[in-house]
């Protein structure tokens, strides 16, 4: 891993922690943007320039703008004062630990002999990368590509249907929370 790789990794980790531990969702969102940009940097370090740019365009340019939009529209304050308690964070840390503890040894066992940087250093020089990815997507993966476009279309339609105001609003159940409309 190069120097830049370490820099981006550190940023990504710090920002990831920021996402989880910021009380204000808007700060979480900004942290996530930083994290996503750091990931784009990591892709770049790994030689996937096209993906790096796509990452910026799709995640930073579209998805996170949408999230910010929603956050600003709803104008939410920090999470309500209710205390987290002690059990939940502990259990959550247990989750995190167990994910890492179960997967990492298996992966390490799988890959410890293989050195990454010795492999195919100049695989995607210049614009060969974009061209090669294009040929993969429009060649072997054409069906999946078309399907994913269909998924996007359905997503758009679904989002519109969901956020359209309906004439009949099914209110919260009796005794449920947030009774006022």
């Amino acid at each position: 891993m190069t120097f830049m790789g370490f820099v981006f990794s550190a940023i990504a980790l710090a920002a990831a922690l920021g996402v989880v531990f910021n009380r204000n969702p808007l700060y979480s969102a900004f942290s996530l943007i930083v994290q996503l940009l750091a990931m784009a940097g990591l892709y770049s370090v790994l030689g996937a320039h096209f993906l790096a740019v796509t990452q910026v365009v799709v995640y930073a340019g579209a998805i996170m703008v949408l999230v910010l939009f929603v956050l600003m529209l709803l104008n939410l304050k920090s999470e309500s004062g209710r205390k987290l308690g002690i059990v939940k964070p502990l259990v959550a840390l247990g989750v995190g630990f167990s994910v890492v503890a179960t997967v990492f040894p298996a992966v390490v066992a799988q890959f410890k002999d293989i050195s990454l940087m010795t492999l195919q250093e100049n695989l995607w020089k210049s614009e060969g990368g974009v061209k090669a990815i294009g040929q993969e997507i429009y060649g072997r993966y054409i069906v999946q590509f078309e399907l994913s476009s269909l998924v996007l279309l359905i997503g758009i339609v679904g989002a519109i249907m969901l956020s359209k105001r309906k004439r009949i609003v099914i209110g919260p159940r009796e005794g449920g929370l947030g009774g006022k409309q």
């Binding site: 989880v20 990492f104 410890k112």
Partner: peptide, 23 residues
């Protein structure tokens, strides 16, 4: 300088995300 670094980073990020989803 091996893939393990990246996988480790990926895992830790994943775990942080998972913790976030939970808490």
């Amino acid at each position: 300088s091996s893939i393990v670094t990246y996988i480790g980073l990926s895992l830790v990020l994943f775990a942080i995300g998972a913790v976030g989803v939970c808490i």
